[in-house]
């Protein structure tokens, strides 16, 4: 009998620390599957940001460096320059990447560092208790926007995948979502493509993944899925914003 579904070899069999309903675990699985598919586990090094993803090493049987909050793209830069033959990925939340670490990700992307960033956008600072992030939707209530995010005072949610796509050093920038099987399948392809492009030395790749944080959104997992569909995707459209087809650098 053929086994058609099993845990990826690059994902350890561990109890998860993520809340029930959180999609970080799906993102982990997709990355592990891609690592298996490309056969790169033994030369892949992961760099989690600080946030719910900080225990990356707990789940992946790969080398891991714990970066300061927001600085994973700079750490990845140093590491990739020191070891160009390795596959280096950063895994960052929206607080990590779109708030405190904006500078590091923009400049790593702009230099065309040959690394991949997996960017989990759940519209809040999950680990610290669901405070407002630059990605929080207008009107969204969080522990630090108790009256709902107001553009007059807090500005508008920031669209990182689109912004990064404007930079010449970027070979691949896409936004996917993790809330339905169809979307997970699309996300799976994006994750593989990003790592493949790094393998082909094409430059900086980023996969933004719209994710649930039902605990901090104060909703049920099913309601969180609806929120991705009805509230996040309308503001954060899915799609590919940049994709190089070859090493077509300027």
């Amino acid at each position: 009998m053929n086994r058609i579904f099993q845990r990826p070899a690059s994902l350890l069999d561990r109890p998860t620390h993520f809340c029930p309903g959180c999609t970080h675990g799906i993102a982990h699985r997709l990355i592990a599957e891609a690592i298996d598919e490309l056969g790169i586990r033994e030369r892949t090094i992961g760099i989690p940001g600080v946030g719910c993803c900080v225990f990356l090493y707990h789940y992946f049987p790969i080398d891991v460096l714990e970066a300061p909050h927001g600085r994973a793209p700079a750490c990845a830069t140093g590491m990739k320059r020191a070891q160009p033959d390795k596959i280096i990925f950063a895994y960052q939340g929206d607080g990590d990447m779109a708030a405190i670490g904006t500078s590091e990700v923009i400049h790593a992307a702009n230099r065309g560092e040959n690394v991949t960033v997996f960017y989990i956008n759940n519209s809040v600072y999950g680990m610290t208790g669901g405070q407002m992030a630059p990605t929080t939707l207008l009107g969204q209530q969080t522990t630090t926007s108790p009256y709902g995010r107001d553009f007059k005072s807090e500005g508008y949610p920031i669209r990182m995948a689109e912004m990064l796509a404007t930079l010449e050093g970027v070979c691949y920038s896409t936004r996917v979502a993790l809330h339905t099987p169809r979307h997970v399948n699309q996300a799976r392809k994006a994750v593989i493509k990003a790592l493949e492009m790094q393998n082909a030395e094409m430059g900086f790749s980023v996969v933004e993944m719209l994710s649930t944080c039902n605990t901090n959104w104060r909703v049920t997992p099913l309601e969180a899925i609806d929120m991705i569909e009805n509230e996040m995707i309308p503001y954060y459209p899915l799609g590919v914003f940049k994709e190089r087809t070859g090493k077509d650098f300027l």
């Binding site: 760099i47 460096l65 970066a67 300061p68 140093g78 020191a82 923009i106």
Partner: peptide, 16 residues
């Protein structure tokens, strides 16, 4: 792009 980036790049290379 900044000293924050510099030292974190050092961290990445040194961790290698």
């Amino acid at each position: 792009e900044s000293e924050i980036a510099s030292i974190n790049m050092v961290m990445g290379a040194a961790a290698s």
